[in-house]
Design a protein around this nucleic acid. Structure first.
Lengths: 201, 201
DNA sequence: TTATTCTTTTCACCCGTTGCAATTTTGCAC
DNA sequence: GTGCAAAATTGCAACGGGTGAAAAGAATAA
């Protein structure tokens, strides 16, 4: 056997915790749901929760590591003749395509999770922190992919692009009701930032 | 008397809490400092702390409301012939000038506080959240100041500008050792974003 | 001074989180 | 299968942040 019983069981427990947590959060709210309830729902002790997730917030962001990896991979796979804006636009495109191909959870669940994060200040803060860390890594990757850029230019480029997308998407989220709307809006925001980055090409 | 003894005493307690907290945070670290210690240092009960601040994090950001007000005032005071980039550049200039004229605390204390926020994940997350809320308000103010912009354009403009500044400053903070260096770096980052916004003028 | 109002304290409690020791489950060799 | 080591789970005690409510204390107006 490639993976022992141990590994499979852990995967199942982890999945059970994620599903229990997200369902309870959706049903009775984030603050109102206690870790004891989540653990009970997943048939483990409260203590065990902490050997799968570092804290209550983390279960909501269970899939962020893989998302980050994707972004870094894209940036590092720069084609020799590609421009700065070219790479960044490819990054946006492929990220959206990946988001649209939701493998693990349904679109409804995904939308529910987004709403949860935007509603709960603690989760919003955590999301912004994760996004910020990602940006720092992306800026570093961009800097390495384009040695002629200064660190400041690389940071500014990533900051402007992600900042524009973030704010356009988040402030206009209520008015869109399909994934396509969302992507279109994001692209609009990205264009404003991209225009400024052409000077770096 | 214009202000009763009650009011003066409250001001003094608030100030004592702020100073006790920041001193203890600097001395023994944020997580290592307990609310009980802060309250004891300020000669009040632990419970009283919560009638001055909503939580442990809030005492670090005691002055953010006034900063936000300043930014909004600047944006609303748009001169009739001013362009979008013009207003935003003025916003940046005046914010930096205000920062440089530190009235309430010394530059050393201010630098210490910045380092504290950047070091402690919980505080960093909170700072990003506050900044995000500010951006949303700024985007709204910009939109109202320039009716010809779409909400998406306004969001993208603010997001790109603030995003560029934020990331350039934060990722390059270690390499600067004077306020002037900091301002110069920020301006460099801002220029990249501003270039993109000229299309909105 | 007294009655009123605001502030502070005390106390009891909930929840998230951690360290630790005890216990159970699993993987594996024989 | 039996026995044993490693890994995972559990229970428990404790700590810190945060909240509600009642009681005590201080400032104000009369």
């Amino acid at each position: 056997m490639v993976e022992g019983l141990r590994e499979r069981k852990k995967q199942r427990t982890r999945q059970a915790l994620i599903e229990s947590a997200l369902r309870l959060f959706a049903e009775k709210g984030y603050e109102e749901t206690t870790l004891a309830e989540i653990a009970a729902q997943a048939d483990v002790s409260t203590r065990t929760f902490f050997s799968y997730f570092a804290g209550k917030e983390d279960v909501v962001f269970y899939d962020t590591p893989s998302r980050l990896e994707l972004a870094e991979t894209i940036l590092r796979s720069r084609r020799p003749d590609e421009t700065v804006t070219g790479v960044l636009m490819r990054l946006i495109d492929e990220s959206f395509r990946h988001m649209a191909s939701y493998e693990d959870i349904s679109f409804e669940d995904s939308a529910l999770r987004v709403r949860l994060i935007l509603t709960e200040p603690a989760l919003q803060a955590r999301a912004l922190l994760l996004l910020f860390d990602t940006q720092v890594k992306l800026a570093k990757a961009l800097y390495e992919a384009f040695p002629r850029l200064t660190p400041v230019e690389a940071s500014a480029a990533v900051g402007a692009l992600v900042g524009a997308i973030k704010l356009t998407v988040m402030t206009n989220l209520e008015h869109q009701n399909s994934l396509q709307d969302l992507v279109d809006t994001a692209r609009l925001g990205a264009e404003v930032a991209i225009a400024g980055l052409r000077s770096l090409d």
